[in-house]
Design a binder for these strands. Structure first.
Lengths: 245, 245
DNA sequence: CAAAACGAAAATGTGCACATTATTCCGCCA
DNA sequence: TGGCGGAATAATGTGCACATTTTCGTTTTG
């Protein structure tokens, strides 16, 4: 009985979990790069073919992305790139405001010398990026600033939570206007916030953070993306699941 | 070639997605009821046998629970009930404090008549539960109070986030001292907070919420669970994946 | 006698073959 | 011609048969 089952070909599965993460990252990267417009359907066979992996890996990655809020799944229909409403973005920024004003207030109350050092270093890094007009670097640093503030609180849960909120709030940026993203999030705001923290002026720091986030969401709300469907093969051009840059 | 493949028996899969949720809920319920002690290994075949579902369903539910932070997975080793450190619990409560003090402050600033009505109704419900000594009901209401506050802010993202934090913070309760849980979370605190909100005293409301959460985490930190392994069949006694109460 | 080593059994991981459901396409009719 | 219905096609969902890895009981050896 077992004899007539076809023999499975010798399979190599050394980096099993690594491949999973690679597929996950590949899709996420395509979204962050703005290649996948809202409403796009992510077909499992097509993704598997493009990323050169089995459909199960794609399926697992999609499920994870759905659970994390990056994608939306409709039973028996497929997985889609969500169309974030301006209202949802506003809500996310609202939650961020609650957390981040509390964060800067706490940092004003109890930051030490190393924290001050890291803050000053980050500000100078951002200034350097502005000076050299390195938009890609500035893009990364702008996000990392908020992560840094959370990490300086020494609360692992807080860092993880804020990281998720940050990716979700920048997702709308990426989906709607990836090319216009970089020149936002003024590093000047960040410098002011750091200055207030170092001066231990909790009231001012909270106010500055509030205005900073309000400015971000306002800037984001003003922009309307031009609808323009994209082929899946084009979206993943240069993006591989095998080796991540 | 296709002829010698064995025919798959006629399968009925009407409630496919419902079964997934049932399995997920069953495991979650077992945890909430304190049946699964920290460190317990959740074996897929055993769970499948106990819950009367296929292993794939169990696997999917476990993956979801891992992603949501309820369980911890070690590659090739299995899925385990996490042993939350007191420090982690403290961190979670710390994040909750940041969010919930902001929530009550906001509610003081902008709550309407229906919100006031719901708050008063909830307090009276809790009082009723105390009067009738309905511990199970009080347990549920204590958690729902915090959810209610978030929902009254009208921010969907905030509600979802806080719901996750709440389950994670009560998980430690459930895992360590399920039988002692009910008599905590004094409804008196809740009543005071509501009174401050209705009086629009933001400062007082925030302070009361802060003290309330500090009291919870302190009470929780003081308790040390007695280690006592439990068989998996016993843990799921009376818990079915087919029909959820 | 303890500890390392070997082997059997069980558990996890993964590709695949279907079933089921959705979508597309084409002919038909009003 | 335009809408409608059904068959063909493609995509999603799921159980299963393995391969791989771990775990545990037994034996052997210093």
């Amino acid at each position: 009985m077992a004899a007539l089952r076809k023999k499975v070909q010798p399979r190599r599965l050394k980096g099993n979990v690594a491949i999973d993460k690679a597929v996950y990252d590949a899709i996420r990267r395509a979204m962050l790069m703005g290649r996948l417009l809202p409403g796009t359907k992510l077909r499992e066979p097509a993704l598997a073919r493009v990323l050169k992996v089995s459909r199960e890996r794609v399926r697992k990655a999609l499920h994870r992305l759905v659970h994390e809020g990056w994608l939306e799944a409709v039973p028996n229909r497929g997985t889609f790139v969500p169309a974030l409403t301006i209202e949802e973005v506003r809500e996310i920024y609202d939650v961020r405001t609650m957390l981040e004003t509390a964060i800067v207030q706490r940092l004003c109350a109890e930051h030490g010398a190393p924290a001050a050092q890291r803050l000053k270093a980050h500000v100078s890094e951002e200034r350097q990026a502005v000076r050299t007009d390195d938009r890609g670097r500035l893009f990364g640093l702008s996000g990392e600033f908020h992560i840094l503030l959370a990490e300086l609180c020494g609360n692992e849960q807080l860092s993880r939570l804020l990281r998720g909120l940050l990716t979700r709030s920048t997702m709308h940026f990426s989906l709607s206007a990836p090319e216009r993203f970089h020149n936002c999030a003024g590093p000047h705001d960040h410098a002011d916030i750091v200055k207030a923290i170092l001066a231990r002026d909790a009231k001012k720091a909270a106010k500055l953070m509030l205005d900073h986030l309000l400015g971000l969401v306002e800037w984001q709300s003003a922009w309307r993306p031009p609808p323009d469907p994209v082929a899946l093969e084009d979206a993943f051009r240069g993006i591989s699941a095998k080796r991540q840059a």
